[in-house]
Nucleic acid binder design. Structure first.
Lengths: 96, 96
DNA sequence: TTGATAGGCAAGTCGGTACTTGCCTATTGT
DNA sequence: ACAATAGGCAAGTACCGACTTGCCTATCAA
């Protein structure tokens, strides 16, 4: 539901994760962890990131595929496009 | 900032308020209050709505104009359009 | 088979925030 | 002038969510 999408986007760390995934799709939990630490200086535990990814997944913003002991995370942008059109007036002005 | 926009959108009541404003622009605090109560069954105090409107305004989603003892609230959709393009890949697929 | 890697589960802590309550200011009408 | 209407300020409560800690499971390499 839209509720889950908005709540998922409310957290800065989760938005960072989406930034990482849009830059390189299909990363594992550990890859995302190290990237967040090195590139953005976020000092978070692995569990924290794992929980964030769970929130993103249940919101439909991230899809996962298991492969052996790895779990790859892929970005899904469909929910994003839906939620915003909610408040855009019918006369959507196209950029000139 | 984008941070304020996302946090503003995180709350269901604030999204209801945006729904009301997109339906009829330029409402006062009291109008919004009564509408939320009658149409959506939300039993919230006037202060609660006032604080929500303050959040929406500081996020740039609502603009206000004072006129006598009335304060009218207008919706502003510009921040919405900006924040979502953040994760839409460069090859934006147009609807066929 | 054993150790190392990748990830999961569950309980607990702590801070932010949504909401209330009470009182105050300003504009309008009679 | 006075009451009623429209809104603002500030402190207090209570709950939700982000993060940690500790331990457990599964897959791969040697």
């Amino acid at each position: 539901m839209a509720e889950d999408v908005f709540k998922a986007l409310a957290d800065p760390t989760r938005r960072r994760i989406l930034d990482e995934l849009v830059e390189r799709d299909g990363q594992t939990l550990f890859e995302i962890c190290t990237r967040l630490v090195t590139k953005h200086g976020l000092g978070l535990s692995r569990q924290a990131i794992s929980q964030h990814l769970a929130v993103l997944e249940s919101a439909g913003l991230v899809r996962t595929r298991r492969q052996g002991r790895y779990k790859f995370h892929d970005l899904t942008t469909e929910p994003l496009e839906r939620i915003v059109t909610r408040w855009l007036k019918p006369d959507t002005p196209e950029a000139p």
